[in-house]
């Protein structure tokens, strides 16, 4: 376990970059949104929700992917095993998702307490994603990090192991598979059933359960793939 913590420092030693970029970009997005909505609040009544929060998730996922393609070769060079490196990566991403979830929950409370930064803005309290239970709210913020980061990590491991061609070939196959699936559903007229299934899912399953399951599968897949990867 000590070794895993030492190896985890590979991801956190340059923490300024790790933290500054995702949160800095999100902060910039927040400021821009406040300025825009403060100037048009008369013009568009009731439309005060924004998707600016997604920038935090996207930048975090990119950082996670880059951490594989750049840190993994360095880690191997330092005599770290693939297994330890991957476990350390998983640990860092779990802790990070949880910490970010808590931070976002605090910002959610601030937004609620200040009546949307004084202008009724919904930057953190986005409809449907805004839940009443505090613990669930933290998970609702945290799990999408795991979902996106582990999918990105899986793709990065695939790239490290099979190169550019391997990554794009896999992407092409994935597109074809999902395309055929979509065509099959359309052909059989199953879309109604799909929507029905989605709408009957509990909010917690849709926001936390299913994404967490996909994240776990991606994490396991990444573990299996990295064991035979060479930098």
């Amino acid at each position: 376990m000590n070794r895993i913590l030492d190896v985890a420092r590979l991801h956190t030693v340059a923490w300024v970059n790790q933290l500054l970029w995702p949160w800095g970009i999100m902060a910039a997005s927040l400021v821009v949104n406040i300025l825009i909505f403060a100037s048009i609040d008369e013009a568009a009544p009731g439309k005060t929700s924004t998707g600016g929060l997604s920038s935090l998730y996207i930048v975090s996922a990119i950082v996670a992917g880059v951490s594989i393609s750049q840190v993994f070769p360095f880690a191997l060079g330092m005599g770290v095993t693939r297994r330890t490196f991957y476990l350390a990566t998983v640990l860092v991403n779990l802790v990070q998702a949880l910490v970010y979830g808590v931070l976002l929950y605090l910002l959610n409370l601030i937004e609620g307490g200040t009546n949307g930064f004084g202008i009724g803005l919904h930057f953190f309290r986005i409809p449907y994603i805004d839940v009443s239970n505090g613990l669930l709210q933290i998970l609702v913020y945290a799990v999408p990090f795991l979902f996106l980061n582990f999918l990105c990590i899986f793709a990065a491991v695939w790239y490290v192991r099979f190169g550019t061609n391997g990554l794009f070939a896999t992407a092409a196959v994935t597109i074809v598979v999902f395309g055929l699936l979509g065509a099959l559903i359309t052909w059989q007229g199953w879309w109604g059933d799909v929507w029905h299934w989605l709408s009957t899912q509990h909010q917690a399953s849709l926001l936390v359960g299913w994404p967490a399951l996909v994240a776990a599968l991606a994490a396991l897949g990444g573990m299996a793939a990295i064991r035979r990867a060479n930098a």
Binding site: R9, L10, V13, A14, Q18, Q70, F74, G77, A231
Partner: peptide, 15 residues
Amino acid sequence: QKYPTAYKVKHVLSL
């Protein structure tokens, strides 16, 4: 040996 772009000399030594 490749080094991650975010690393400074002191980071590598500390690791």
